[in-house]
Nucleic acid binder design. Structure first.
Length: 441
DNA sequence: TCTGGGGTCCTAGGACCC
DNA sequence: TCTGGGGTCCTAGGACCC
């Protein structure tokens, strides 16, 4: 790239922007409500894997004081006394509903970043929209009409400020779901920022909250006015960016392309504790198979696997053990049988008999695009062999996609799988499985 | 009894090279 | 006895996000 081109790019970055954040309200709860009219106004929660923690709450439940991530057993009484409707996480349903929302949003701007399962940024800079609040209301109405999902819209000149706007929208019904901070006076923005607690600022987590509060920085406004050099020293360049973003300078561009992942992990807490090496082998083989599917999906191969196991760290009464190991694979591959082989060789090295294991996981790293594979001149692994293996995996992936997960799987993944997670309160996969469609009486 | 999972980015420090 | 310094790569660990 020439220096001039670089300069243009830089100027473009500094140009003031108009960005909208569209955020689905209580997304998992809203998904469940789309398919059950009887719970529209009832308290609803959705649980994490193994039905362990609360990961989504309806407004009624938030008012009862239930916290994000709170363990279910702590609120069993509340659930009974307030007749809270409880669901296990139904990721097939949520992922499909998310796709529908994104499809609707894509009609409003050519520049869309699907930031998470329930949030998207839209770049509105060059669209010359005369009334941004009206625009926000249109977006909101259309998403609701086409998907049944209610959303909030925050509009501002940086991503961090759109997050702030959307926070304010959710706490203040009088905004009717849309707040535009992009053409506000500085005084008005300052007033908004002073009402936002430091811990609610995007990019400020528990550690930084503790640190900043210790220095009297307790609101978004305090952070906006903080000394940049001091922030950079203690919160690194990431914190520095947050400060600039609060000042309305867009430093975090909208990402419309999705680069291949650098690490792909799968880890789960077991439904019940296991001790046998064979049970751990089944789980590790299953996790690595899933991770390998993801690896192939993005057209990559890898040369390293990390395997870890751990006992239940919450239980102080049993001996605790936690260990991990990284295994190098001598050639880049995405071939499930090989990945299983190396993962299990790692597991063998860290498995100790006698412990009750509660969790295991794998992490694939040193990922490169498939095209970058260097043919091995002397070794047993040839490019021809790679193509043969790729074709086999292609067919297996296709069969599992069409006929359902685990239509074909490897024997070492096991049949009983008594470590599998608990999901007692799962709703139907209404939109992705023909046998689970909604029945209208 | 029961406590989630899947990611990203940044920095410090060690190994190694010339 | 005296024993450089700068650059790069890699990894582990720590912060954050939803």
């Amino acid at each position: 790239m020439t220096k001039i081109a670089r300069l243009d790019e830089y100027k473009n970055m500094l140009r003031s922007r108009v960005i909208a954040l569209i955020d689905c309200n209580n997304f998992y709860v809203s998904c469940e409500r789309v398919f059950d009219a009887s719970i529209q106004t009832r308290p609803v929660i959705v649980l994490s894997n193994n039905d362990g923690c609360v990961v989504a709450r309806s407004n009624e439940v938030k008012k009862l004081g239930v916290k994000m991530g709170q363990p279910v057993f702590e609120i069993e009484n509340l659930i009974k006394t307030h007749n809270i409707h409880v669901f296990s996480s139904n990721y097939s349903l949520y992922a499909d509903m998310s796709n529908r929302v994104m499809t609707v949003l894509a009609q409003f701007s050519p520049t869309l970043e699907a930031y998470s399962i329930d949030e998207a940024f839209l770049d509105l800079t060059d669209l010359n929209i005369p009334d941004l609040t009206l625009f926000g209301k249109e977006v909101k109405a259309k998403v609701l009409k086409f998907t049944g999902i209610p959303v909030s819209v925050g509009i501002a000149t940086s991503k961090t400020l759109t997050k702030i706007a959307s926070e304010i929208v959710k706490k203040n019904p009088e905004y009717e779901g849309v707040l535009d901070l992009s053409f506000c006076s500085d005084e008005l923005i300052d007033e908004c920022l002073s009402k936002v607690e430091i811990s609610d600022v995007w990019g400020i987590g528990p550690q930084y909250t503790k640190f900043l509060t210790g220095y009297g920085i307790t609101s978004a406004r305090d952070l906006k006015n903080a000394n940049e050099n001091w922030i950079r020293r203690h919160l690194t360049v990431v914190g520095n960016r947050t400060v600039l973003e609060l000042r309305g300078v867009c430093c975090i561009p909208i990402a419309t392309d999705y680069p291949p992942k650098k690490g792909i992990g799968r880890a789960k807490t077991f439904g019940k504790e296991v001790s046998k090496h064979s049970d751990l082998e089944e789980s590790v083989a299953t996790y690595i198979s899933r991770a390998a599917e993801k690896l192939r999906e993005q057209g990559s191969v890898a040369t390293q696997i990390t395997v870890f196991v751990r006992t239940n760290s919450f239980n102080k009464n049993i001996p605790h053990y936690s260990n991990s190991i990284s295994v190098r694979i001598p050639y880049p591959t995405s071939f499930t049988p090989d990945l299983i082989k190396y993962a299990l060789s790692g597991l063998k090295l860290i498995y100790i008999e006698g412990y009750k294991y509660k969790k295991a996981g794998v992490y694939i790293t040193k990922i490169i695009p498939e095209e970058f594979i260097q043919p091995d001149l002397f070794g047993e692994y040839s490019i021809i062999e790679h193509h043969r293996q790729s074709r086999l995996m292609l067919i297996i992936d296709a069969l599992n996609r069409i006929y359902g997960r685990d239509t074909i799987f490897f024997a070492v993944q096991g049949l009983k799988r008594n470590w599998r997670m608990r999901q007692f309160r799962l709703s139907n996969r209404f939109t992705t499985n023909i046998d689970e469609l909604l029945t209208v009486k």
